[in-house]
Amino acid sequence: MNRQTLKQLVLASYTDSELDARKINKISDLLSKKELKLYIRALKNSEKQNTILLEVPSRNLIDEGSLQDLFPDKRISVSVDPELLVGMRFQDNDDIFEFSLKNTLDKITEHIKEQYD
């Protein structure tokens, strides 16, 4: 199975931007074990590309509606990490953007350490 076929199979697994269990079952029945592994990996990658992972110190600090406006084509998955203190960290596919107080404090610590050295 080449990359092109794999991409087409992944695209065919969606109905209205959501994974379609019926289609996936149908496709997986037709694949060998090796091909199935590749297909699962490709589905995972596709899901990763379609999802924004958002970490915040507290759920009260965000407005999910306005965030959805920022990423209209993507699903937003929110989790809580109190260590961030203030701000947020989000992951879009394989890029991580960190706008948190924890990151700022870490950077200041690093800078002071370098000054001491």
Partner: peptide, 15 residues
């Protein structure tokens, strides 16, 4: 000690 410190949002590419 913090003179010369510039704050940038941390961006990383991960795998």
């Amino acid at each position: 000690k913090v003179k010369g410190f510039h704050y940038d949002a941390k961006t990383q590419n991960v795998g």
